[in-house]
Design a protein around this nucleic acid. Structure first.
Lengths: 113, 113
DNA sequence: TTTATATTTGGCAATAATACCAAATATAAA
DNA sequence: TTTATATTTGGTATTATTGCCAAATATAAA
């Protein structure tokens, strides 16, 4: 078991494992936007949001370009949306129908690794 | 934006955001096993592994049953494997071909929510 | 230039996560 | 029973994360 790879993967999950960052990712899933909009969205300090974005950037799931004074952030990894949908399912049935909601039919199209 | 739901989702990601826990999840993806096997796998103290398992249990992605003295843990959410595959892709191309590896063709089979 | 806007960085206090040890619990074997 | 095995819980020190403020930077507007 390659611990370097496991660690890199875990870092990506960790990046998504914060409410503000997840909210940001879900917002960016609807389209790119500037930091100022994300500040409004999560209701935290500008600097806080900026640091959250740096975390997401570090693990490679968002990216940005400058547009004048604004930094435009965008989602770099659309497949994350699938994750989030699946996680939704986990939440919506956390004690019954364990393996149903996003199981077999999703799995069979996997095929990597 | 419902912060309760966002928070619940983030907790699931957070649970996966630790190397030992992710290794455990990947191992369980291959089949159920007892805590003792997982202890060997991650090379940490029994109590540490037990607590990691509690975290995974809390967010609802693993479950267990007792078999004699042993506790048999198993993955409750197979769709996580998809996530992990996608994350693999993120890692393997973290600076080129941004939206390719697990993009459109994966997305189009989504359909939940 | 000077000033304003948008954003990032550095610093730091508060909080949370991690990992170990020791002790508790629960089952099985002797 | 007593003892051994498998596991969880409680306690705690160490380390990491978070979020704010203040200061720095970078672009645009006046």
């Amino acid at each position: 078991m390659d611990m370097d790879i496991i660690e890199a993967k875990a870092n990506i999950f960790k990046a998504l494992g914060h409410p503000s960052r997840l909210a940001i990712v879900e917002k960016l899933a609807e389209g790119e936007c500037c930091v100022c909009e994300l500040v409004e969205l999560v209701g935290a300090d500008f600097s806080t949001v900026s640091k959250h974005l740096a975390v997401l950037k570090d693990v490679g799931i968002v990216d940005f370009t400058r547009d004048g004074q604004k930094m435009i952030y965008r989602l770099k990894v659309p497949c994350l949306l699938r994750f989030i949908d699946c996680i939704d399912n986990v939440i919506n049935r956390n004690d019954s129908n364990e393996t149903r909601a996003c199981g077999a039919e999703t799995l069979q199209t996997a095929g990597s690794k």
